[in-house]
Design a protein around this nucleic acid. Structure first.
Lengths: 342, 342
DNA sequence: AATTAGCACTCTTGCTTTTTGAGTGCTAAA
DNA sequence: TTTAGCACTCAAAAAGCAAGAGTGCTAATT
């Protein structure tokens, strides 16, 4: 695939980088000034013309300069881009931004997303740690009055959810005991996704005392288990998209698409590589056709656990963004590993 | 102030309502068709001309119809608007939308905001219940491993926060006991806003055993108490603003303003009436100069506890929105009262 | 005194036309 | 293979034009 002449590579690379910087199509003269090549503009024009027919560049219209095509970006990302270290400044910003949330995995991921989004002016989509299966690790029910109690649920990946729940009848020691019986036998150690309303209802029904007393509690457990799943996708900094004039009014549609959450799951999760770049129409969703997605996985305790993805205009600064994403996933993985170890 | 002739009132009212509906300036002919008045367009023009010089109407340009000025809206809202009951449909939507979150005040408010925003196509800003002082009601620390525990904090207004925290040393029974001692003596019953890092540190230092063991726990308590305050402002449906062509690209600026959260606090809280309407430039913030805000308080157990506010274009449908806001604050207040009673 | 018909005037909106300028593609020479 | 030169294209900005909506004013009418 790399059958481009050195000069073509130089030109393609310069076009991509300049276009990323300025947002304007790049012309032959400008290109000479930029690269310092000692050939005439006509020569460059010939090269550009070839790059166009090969599909790496395209023209918005006849009398404009060239911009990279999707294939052009792809070639750039795969072959031309330098593999930089992260900026000192960005590193500091990341570290400062996430340190306060170190102890709590869910908040850490959320915070990390915000920081990365801020730094890159992109939207950040991430998944809370989880791997394939999230297991219920601990459930606690603390009475706070005659009729109500707080319910707390902790999973294997260190995510904690709590809510208040209210009973119709009195919360007796007996009910509490039976609740813990059910929890110990049917819930602890099970995957959160297995907790269904039906299974909880049957469990509630099997109880000695008034089964109706148990019902609201079981319903609350269900709800927390479900919210566990739902809240795995975390979106941050999506309003950054409005600052890119590339999108124009399309930013609104994209914004709304991102806020739907569900489709994002597919976008983020369907990757194999540790770091994946999806450019423009390579994306499955029409709504992302003018965007690129950079996703990286992070691993907790040596196993893939979640991923962090950035979404921004195709014309994004890949070269400086990628190192930040790499660094962030790296450090987040380490921090979570540390946070949930016994 | 009500020194307008009946005919002027009719005309002003019709202009406001029609402009709210169509978004186009209203002309003299249209006005006749609309109201069924039996006078000529010239007469109406004279009246409109007077209303203009009195400051109730204005013209986008010479050869356009009239639109209400801020003063015009104000007069309409104060004197002309009918005091409707809530639509049956809206009522149903609200009830259906919030019933699932009935038990948990914080979620209830969030959900109520979403529903109201959806219904009115405005952004909704609300404050979680709290009144003047939020008191720490219960704190629970549940060990989940040798080095970590989950911390749960409940306040008088029924808001529950939890997070995982991690100790550097082992979490012994002694530490746990000492923790509860501190909690019982220095934290329970105190306002959340009084919990400061300093006060916690001194508390931690007064302990028999290793004070450094206590530090991360106290820090976590602080953080939860602070997040209590911070999360009191809840924003919902802010992306609805993009659907109003009134704002144009200004929607983005407004959106970002709302997302800053802090200033909203002032907007929402600084009201005296049970229901307040702030129109256009009456708002303190420049960013809201093209918006109107409708805020209503809700009360829990007979005392003002929080408020729910809607933000939308000045040209919003006051007549139908106001009943919805009233109804919502009413029902939300009742539900929370029920949820937190013993 | 209030209303109305009539008319001139204004100003937006939408459309077409012109101009300008950047940048290309091609040809022919080096 | 490279380059100078030139005609050509096309978008974007500027300018011009016609139509239409709506007003304000004046003078006549009730």
């Amino acid at each position: 695939m790399s059958e481009l002449s050195e000069r073509k590579k130089l030109i393609l690379s310069a076009v991509v980088e300049q276009y990323i910087k300025s947002g304007e199509p790049v012309g032959s003269k400008e290109l000479i000034a930029l690269t310092g090549m000692s050939v005439s503009s006509a020569t460059v024009r010939n090269e550009m013309s070839e790059l166009s027919s090969m599909g790496y560049l395209e023209q918005p219209h006849t009398s404009a300069g060239r911009i990279p095509s999707q294939k052009g970006y792809r070639y750039y990302v795969d072959n031309l881009m330098k593999d930089r270290e992260i900026d000192e400044l960005n590193r500091r910003m990341i570290e400062a931004g996430i340190s306060s949330a170190a102890g709590d995995p869910e908040r850490l991921i959320a915070q990390a997303g915000e920081v990365l989004a801020e730094l890159t002016k992109c939207a950040c989509v991430s998944t809370a740690p989880g791997g394939d299966t999230v297991i219920i690790r601990k459930i606690e029910l603390v009475p706070v009055g005659i009729h109500s109690a707080m319910l707390v649920l902790l999973t294997s990946n260190g995510i904690l959810k709590s809510r208040l729940c209210r009973l119709d009848c009195e919360l007796t020691a007996k009910i509490l005991e039976e609740f813990y019986n059910i929890v110990d036998s049917c819930i602890i150690g099970k995957p959160a996704s297995d907790i269904s309303v039906v299974s909880m209802q049957t469990a509630a029904a099997s109880v000695d005392s008034d089964p109706f007393a148990m019902l609201p509690l079981m319903a609350a457990v269900c709800e927390l288990a479900r919210s566990m799943e739902d809240s795995r996708i975390i979106l941050g900094g999506s309003s950054n998209l409005f600052s890119h004039k590339d999108y124009g009014v399309g930013a609104i549609e994209l914004f709304e698409f991102l806020n739907k959450r569900e489709p994002l799951s597919a976008v983020i999760s369907g990757i194999k590589e540790p770091l994946d770049i999806i450019i423009g129409k390579e994306n499955l969703y029409r709504q992302l056709e003018n965007s690129s997605v950079i996703v990286a996985k992070y691993s907790v305790g040596g196993r893939d656990s979640g991923s962090i993805g950035l979404i921004g205009p195709t014309r994004m600064d890949y070269e400086s963004i990628i190192p930040s994403v790499k660094y962030l996933t790296d450090i987040v993985g380490k921090m979570i590993t540390q946070a949930i170890e016994e």
